[in-house]
């Protein structure tokens, strides 16, 4: 029991790393996703093709393989990051495709007439996106984006296999050292994960309600 009490603070500290990785990757993949979605619907065919290839390739690859290729590939071309940065990069590449596809679906759901009205007023493509399309698309995609980001939160656990001491990595180390408290440590980890997943779910539901009221 004492071992568990000693273990808890370390575990909680590891969750800070998990949350850091989650929030940073959410931010970067949101940026990547918005840019990719804008390119995907742009008037320039090569931009559309480039994103189409990126999305098709990365979306259909297991995140584990994306990690492996990042970790083994980039050092070969002279890019050496910390494990944390590699994990951030792999998670961003992977999650960015889901953000892009979610946004594209949101963009396609906007009535064509409103976009024509915007064009008929003389707004440029970027202005149509900026003032008419994205404000509406971002609101309607809150629920699907919530699923994407909660999946991201859980996917950060894969970084444990690549040297990042986040929650799962720390948990596995602890379990290996103190074999007497395996069940307790794993149970505690599971409970914290579920608590955060529920919390994020609530937060996004609140955000969705807020977006709806504005409309």
């Amino acid at each position: 029991m004492n071992e568990l009490i000693g273990a808890l603070p370390i575990l909680l500290h590891a969750f800070v790393t998990t949350l850091e990785l989650t929030f940073l990757a959410a931010l970067t993949s949101l940026v990547v996703g918005i840019i990719a979605a804008a390119m995907r619907v742009s008037p320039v065919p090569p931009l559309r093709w480039a994103v189409s290839v990126y999305v098709r390739f990365v979306r259909n690859t297991p995140l584990t393989i994306v990690f492996f290729i990042t970790v083994f590939g980039l050092p070969q071309v002279g890019i050496n990051f910390s494990f944390f940065a590699f994990a951030l990069l792999a998670l961003t590449l992977y999650t960015g495709t889901f953000v892009a596809e979610t946004l594209r679906a949101g963009i396609q759901a906007i009535p064509i007439g409103q976009i024509e009205a915007a064009r008929a007023t003389g707004l440029t493509f970027i202005q149509v996106l900026r003032y008419v399309v994205l404000p509406q698309a971002l609101r309607s995609v809150v629920p699907p984006l919530a699923s994407v980001f909660i999946a991201l939160f859980k996917n950060t656990s894969i970084a444990s296999a690549f040297g990042v001491a986040e929650a799962i990595g720390t948990m596995t180390n602890m379990v290996n050292v103190h074999s007497t408290i395996v069940l307790w440590v794993m149970g505690a980890t599971a409970i914290i994960y579920i608590a955060f997943a529920l919390l994020f779910g609530r937060a996004f539901a609140w955000l969705e309600r807020k977006a709806l009221i504005v409309r």
């Binding site: 859980k154 948990m171 794993m186 980890t189 994960y193 579920i194 997943a197």
Partner: peptide, 23 residues
């Protein structure tokens, strides 16, 4: 349903791998 959706698959796997035999 909430348990299944909230747990990382990796954690469930490790649970079955490490804790299940002990229990």
């Amino acid at each position: 349903v909430e348990l299944g959706r909230g747990l990382p698959v990796l954690l469930s796997m490790l649970f079955l791998f490490l804790a299940f035999p002990l229990a």
